[in-house]
Each structure stands twice: as structure tokens, then as C-alpha cells.
Amino acid sequence: MPSLSMTINGKQVTKDVDPNTLLVQFLRENLSLTGTHVGCDTSQCGACVVHVNGKSVKSCTMLAVQAEGSDVTTIEGLAQGDELHPMQAAFREHHGLQCGFCTPGMVMSAVDLLQNNPDPSETEIREWLEGNICRCTGYHNIVKAIQAAASEMRR
């Protein structure tokens, strides 16, 4: 069993894992970071999005060993202590979540969008979210939340 090291949410982690372990399984099962969710088996739903070296990645499409030496951020690592990340705060303020299951992936994906495009139009937001499925909100308030976070983060 190979030994695997990476930084997760700012902490160095070293574990032995089966080489066929997916990154999402490593997070959920080996590290009990259950905020990252599995909603499908075809890399379509985006509930498992995390950041690997600052970029959004579907953690079900990547083996844990491929993240060797990487800097991984999950939904658990986004807030600074009790202070929510502006994207998290905007999702709450604008009711961008209902059941909460797609939310971690949605938030992580949206944070990466603003890294690429700090002032996205509604169309650009909707196109970016194409890889994240939400069944509850109809996306209306998710789009509003991302627009609000973008405006807040540009200040």
C-alpha cells in the first residue's frame, strides 16, 4: 500500500492508501472529511468538487495518489475559523441552498469561477456551473449568490 502525503486544508497529511482509492474516497473515508459529497458515478454532478493546487477538480475523477504533494482545499477548509468565506456568506444571504447536498461542490466551483473571472455575467455564471447539478433551487438563487459574492469580493 503506497504512502501518500499532501496538504489538506493547510495541514500536512500522510496516510497509507490502496492505489485505486479515489481522491473523494480518501477525503471521506480515510480522513472523515464528509463535507465533500458523492452524487453520481459518471463525474457529472459536481457534488465532489474540491480545489487541488487552487483549481476546482471533481475529486471523483482523480486518484488520491495523483494528488501526492498537492495542496488540497475542501469545503471544510474554506471558512477562516468562524468567519464564512464571502461565497459561503452569499449563499446563505441569498438562499442559494436548500437540501445542502450539492452545496459544497457548488461553492467550491463558484470560488474558482471568481478566481478566473472576478466579474462574471449571469450567462457566464450559468455556463460555468454546467458541471454542477442542483435539484432543489432551480439555480436562481445560486446565480444571485455568486453575483453578490463577486461584487463583495471586488470591493
Binding site: 464528509t34 465533500t36 469545503i75 471544510e76 449563499f91 446563505r92 438562499h95 441552498l97 452545496t103 459544497p104
Partner: peptide
């Protein structure tokens, strides 16, 4: 009123 359940869902602390 903004939802109180959101904090846990937004910080990965939901318990499914």
C-alpha cells in the same frame, strides 16, 4: 429569516 441550517451545510458539517 436567513436559514440557521445553512451554516452546517456551507461548512461541510451536514450529517447525511
Amino acid at each position: 429569516v436567513r436559514r440557521r441550517e445553512d451554516k452546517r451545510f456551507l461548512t461541510g458539517k451536514g450529517r447525511y
